[in-house]
Nucleic acid binder design. Structure first.
Lengths: 211, 211, 211, 211
DNA sequence: CATGAATGAGGCTTCATTCAT
DNA sequence: CATGAATGAAGCCTCATTCAT
């Protein structure tokens, strides 16, 4: 059933949340999904392929969300704000999937070539977005066209950094730090007023950089 | 011999360069060091402890380098430039050790608690540096004291991002991207004129953010 | 439907041609037959039973063909020639089935007891043929009755050897050698003039042995 | 210890004798050798490599034995007889290793490319021997030079056939036939008077073919 | 009967760690 | 201390067979 496929996908997401991709075994995934180990291979060739499926879907939704923001008739300030809200509050996205992306961005050595290509694609989507911003708002933006790529990457890296530090990572006396594995705790943080001021803070910085 | 201990340390560095920390086995390390596998355990309890030793040394040198920069009678512009040069060109540092840090920053899930604590300490050193900058150059800096921590982290993340993308990562048709494993190629890139303009570029952005 | 049974049989033959009996899975067979995996077990208890059915049919046709040759009023020379043509050019036989026999003759360890019994039966049929030849052509044959069995086996083994080497096996730089998996290529080789001279060559040897 | 390596080799030989190469697992081999499973990989990369080592050694001894026969100042009759004795009675050879060769000759589908290449090499060694015979005894041999290869192969196949049927295979009511797994039983058969008459029988046939 | 998802036993391989020499 | 062989737990993957629909 297509249902089991989805359960496996959800199980991997949950487990990445709990222990990270590289610490998750096929056995973990199937146990989490209440499925026999052998059944995994009915749906996916291996763990990497399962991850790749998650990422493939994610890429589509990022593109759509970005396009939506660009279509609106916002001021530059509002575009950045909406972009940040979209990226940070996962408005309309699946938080668990976002955690997956954050996790693999911080565990590059174990990724398959295809997975790495998804990360490159993600970069490209992001760059494209800022190039479009640059074109649409060129009179307000004081950077050179040739620098758009670098700016796009820096902004992406700032946002990732913020998300990871504010939502996904918790400092922990024993572990140094560890990834938050309670999805509700993440949601709560996302909807806190502190998040709103963080977004405001980031917006300022990004506007400083761009204008 | 204390000598063997050092050889093991150097071997791990080389291997992290080649294949990443998580893909390096004890066997790899001892073979690289021309030491018997069993001997590893005479010097270190396990791979993590070896890594922790590398990081422990690194922390000391970062502190010293930062202090040196602060002692000088620079303008803000010159401080930032020197800071960037120190971080990016590894002036006075061991490049291999820096690669280790870059690698583990991108492979968090496999790290031991102690290793993670070193990464937190690294954050703290960095924050401390910017707090000192803030105090010393307060009249030129237009950010609030409470935001120093966040700014420090953002600047760190931008710099890491730059280093990784300019020096350590190469795009690769088959693999998506892979880490540069030739230390000389890294050095060459570090000393290229492109690096100098990148530093200039980053300085501008950081100054935009701070002032 | 009895039809599916036949399709499974044909599928196994094709797959033995392609990859050998032991490398063929139930899944391969049902996919080749465009039948569901579960259905396999409606028609056969397991892979061995399917093979046994193929062999069972084959035994009947060998017997008939041998009898036909014996009935004719040939000279000894002509009998041997006809026998060789029948064995080697698969006149009136199904080449695919013959490939099956050649394959299992070269993969004895994985065969079921019943399958092995078929191979013994095949031996017996062959021996019986030569015993009949011996009786019919006793004045031309210079071997002792007690040696007929051994001669029959030797002749069988020479013929198998020739077939395998001329038609079914191709030398291959990478694989050492591999089985020809193109049925048309096999047919072409069978009908080449080289085959005719091989038959002539074998006939001479067999006659040398017998007379 | 190099000792364990030898034990693994001997264990595989024993197990091939008992159940055939393809039915023997790494686990079987290490249990037979009283070694832990993981230890296998200290000595060999996998089962195929272990087999290849056995074959590699075997090739050397075949060459030497053949050369020895050729050096002697025999009549053609005596050369053939010595060749047969060498091949069939394993004079000076290790019977277990010979069983390995007989086994893999009858289980081609599971062999690695390298193993198959050894079988081709074995063919070549054999052909070379008969070419040398042809040259040395040309005045007594009535076959054409171009047919030497085919004759060599046929003779090899006759001898293999004989060995397998007389020594290694036992007819068995339940199993059809099975490989003799008692090395002493094989030795006994080899030294029986029946073997001597078989050799005599084969010699006659081979001489008939060659002269 | 047909289907194909589900199962789990069985095999392979890796590698951190131990320990006798 | 040095060595490297030995261990076995842990992970991956395959595939014959079952069984609910």
């Amino acid at each position: 059933m297509e249902n089991k496929r989805k359960m496996l996908i959800e199980s991997l997401k949950i487990l990445i949340l709990k222990k990270g991709y590289s610490n998750t075994t096929i056995d973990d995934i199937t146990k989490e999904a209440n499925i026999s180990k052998g059944s995994f291979y009915t749906y996916f060739k291996n763990k990497d392929e399962l991850l790749e499926e998650i990422l493939s879907n994610k890429m589509e939704s990022i593109k759509k969300e970005n396009e939506k923001i660009l279509k609106e008739d916002f001021t530059l300030d509002a575009v950045i704000e909406n972009f940040l809200i979209s990226k940070i509050k996962e408005r309309g996205f699946d938080i668990k999937t976002e955690v997956v992306v954050m996790n693999i961005l911080q565990n590059l050595d174990v990724l398959s070539p295809t997975t790495k290509k998804f990360l490159l694609e993600r970069d490209q989507i992001n760059i494209k977005f800022f190039q479009d911003i640059f074109i649409k708002y060129s009179k307000f933006i004081k950077i050179e066209l040739k620098d758009v790529i670098n700016h796009a990457k820096i902004i992406d890296c700032i946002i990732n950094h913020f998300k990871i530090n504010k939502f996904y990572v918790t400092i922990d006396v024993n572990e140094g730090f560890s990834f938050e594995n309670n999805i509700d705790a993440i949601k709560e943080k996302m909807n806190s007023s502190e998040t709103d001021s963080s977004i405001e803070f980031l917006k300022k910085i990004i506007l400083k950089i761009l204008t």
